[in-house]
Write a protein that binds this DNA or RNA. Structure first.
Length: 277
DNA sequence: TAACAGGGACGTA
DNA sequence: TACGTCCCTGTT
């Protein structure tokens, strides 16, 4: 039995439940004992939160190499909230309910696949699709404590398979999108390393070349993988919220370079926050 | 039982 | 720019 090292931190703008429910990560879930697990690429993490105290069950090395950045812990999210117009009661309220939401720095390929699947789909089903995808095409892995899980399959795993094969993972018509995009990545037509190095506008332009990636999906990938905080994905829920509360348009100028964070606050508020009360 | 909609994008007009 | 279509499944 390997000894489990723990990293403990305190943070007022970190709420693992809110992050999990915010719909940016589909391989994060609450376990029976109230702790959470996160899987990214082939890495596994378990964490637990009590109030503002969070415990990450991983080594110091994993913490420094992966999870500190993954949870964007070098960024002060209260500073974003402070920028909200004090007269904008809607946004203040949304941020107040979602103050533990953060923008994760997730794997690029994983986000491309996840958001290809997300279209005309709901979070619960997206989770299930990705689970099936990992079980069938990922590698079986084992943590030191004996937890079994599957890694996220790389693009090379989908090369040479029929376009409709992923229908067996419930992807439906999106199967073709994932297979064709995987092939484009595998044969170098789409260069993930370059995309990761580009500024927002150019990364988005490249992502839009992928079959199945449209405006909204490209913005999600830019925000949740590339951490372009000026990305602002507009889906049907955000659209409705903007129509109701920002008839003159969202004040992008005022919130330069943090629109994505505010978008997530609004999204969480619209989908989750309102149900609590 | 039978619609229906759920964090869109593509192809065609 | 607009609209039908794509596939699956939990919900009503």
């Amino acid at each position: 039995m390997g000894r489990v090292s723990v990293i403990r931190i305190e943070n007022d703008n970190f709420n693992i439940r809110q992050i999990c429910d915010s719909g940016q990560c589909f391989r994060m879930k609450e376990l029976q004992d109230g702790s959470y697990e996160v899987i990214s690429r082939d890495r596994y993490l378990r964490l637990r939160q009590e109030g503002r105290k969070i415990s990450f069950y991983c080594s110091r090395e994993e913490w420094e190499e992966i999870w500190f950045d993954y949870f964007d812990l070098g960024t002060n999210y209260q500073a974003f909230i402070s920028r909200i117009n004090p007269r904008d009661s809607y946004l203040l309220n949304a941020a107040g309910q979602a103050e533990g939401v953060r923008i994760l720095k997730q794997d690029l390929w994983e986000m491309i696949v996840s958001f290809l699947i997300s279209q005309q789909n709901n979070i619960k089903r997206i989770r299930h699709c990705i689970e099936l995808l990992c079980e069938k095409y990922g590698d079986p892995c084992l943590t030191e404590e004996g937890v079994r899980y599957f890694s996220f399959p790389g693009p090379e795993r989908f090369v040479g398979i029929p376009q409709d094969e992923l229908m067996s993972c419930n992807l439906g018509y999106r199967s073709k999108y994932v297979v064709l995009t995987a092939q484009a990545v595998a044969d170098g037509q789409v260069d993930l390393a370059k995309i990761a190095s580009y500024p927002h506008w150019r990364a988005k332009k490249e992502l839009l070349r992928c079959f199945g990636v449209g405006e909204k999906v490209a913005e999600c990938i830019c925000l949740f993988a590339l951490h372009h905080l000026d990305a602002f994905p507009v889906d049907t829920h955000i659209r409705q919220a903007l129509d109701r509360h920002y008839k003159r348009g969202f004040p992008h100028r005022r919130y330069k370079d943090c629109q994505g964070v505010l978008q997530q606050y609004i999204f969480y508020h619209e989908l989750v926050g309102k149900k609590d009360k």
